Amino acid sequence: MAHLAGSQEWLDGQVRLRGWQAELRAHALPAPPVRYGDWTGESVCRIGQRMVASGLPSSIFVASDLMALGFLRALHENGVRVPEDISVVGFDDNEFAPQVYPPLTTVRQSFATVGARCMEILLGRIEGRDVDNTPAVPELVVRASATSPRTA
């Protein structure tokens, strides 16, 4: 497994990386090296080309759907089959995620819910009220780009 992280200059990139690392720890899995893109499909396509040449993991979590598209392109250009050879999961559930081939498995985050929670927390703090700081829970949208883990 691997992670293609977004820019660490962005809070989104930092939080998604920390979340991935926390899940690995929670399941007693080793953390492989992380590769970093700049949120563009082009940057991740180049990274994907290098990964194909050096050996691919069985699965990869990509920090955004746009970045995942660049990775899918690199795989396609090199004859790598998704999900038969590698499972790919993105983040955002952009409108194009179900339209690409194979349709992209992704993490959906309701921006309306996130925005409402932010406002609730902000107003609660301004008004001096105790407010639940629990973040909104994202949803995994399973499509054809990912499959069950392979056994050795």
Rank of each mutant, 00 (worst) to 15 (best):
M1P: 13
M1Q: 14
A2N: 14
A2R: 15
H3R: 11
L4Y: 12
L4F: 14
G6W: 09
G6M: 11
G6K: 01
S7L: 10
S7M: 07
E9K: 08
W10K: 01
W10E: 11
L11Y: 13
D12R: 02
D12T: 13
G13E: 06
Q14P: 08
R16W: 11
R16Y: 10
R18N: 14
W20D: 07
E23H: 11
E23Y: 09
E23R: 09
R25Q: 10
R25C: 02
A26L: 08
A28E: 00
P30I: 00
A31F: 04
A31W: 02
A31V: 15
P33N: 12
V34G: 05
R35Q: 13
Y36R: 03
Y36N: 04
D38Y: 09
T40D: 05
T40K: 03
G41Y: 08
S43M: 08
V44H: 03
R46F: 11
R46T: 14
R46K: 14
Q49V: 14
Q49T: 15
M51T: 07
S54F: 10
P57N: 05
S59W: 08
F61E: 05
A63I: 09
A63Q: 02
S64C: 04
M67E: 09
M67P: 13
A68H: 09
L69H: 07
L69T: 12
G70R: 02
L72M: 15
R73L: 13
A74M: 10
A74F: 10
L75A: 12
H76R: 15
E77F: 07
G79D: 12
R81M: 06
V82E: 05
V82G: 08
V82N: 09
D85F: 12
I86Y: 12
F91Y: 15
F91L: 01
F91N: 04
F91H: 14
D93E: 01
E95P: 06
F96L: 07
A97D: 01
A97R: 05
A97L: 07
P98F: 12
Y101W: 15
P102K: 11
P103K: 04
P103R: 03
L104W: 13
L104F: 12
T105Y: 04
T105H: 00
T106C: 06
V107C: 10
R108I: 04
S110L: 04
F111R: 01
T113E: 08
T113F: 02
R117G: 00
R117W: 02
I121R: 01
L122H: 02
L122T: 06
L123T: 09
G124F: 05
G124L: 00
G124Q: 02
R125V: 12
I126S: 08
R129A: 04
D130W: 06
V131G: 01
D132L: 06
D132C: 09
N133F: 15
T134R: 02
T134W: 00
P138E: 08
E139T: 13
E139G: 01
V141E: 01
V142Y: 01
V142E: 11
S145G: 07
A146N: 02
A146R: 03
A146Y: 03
A146G: 11
S148W: 10
R150H: 12
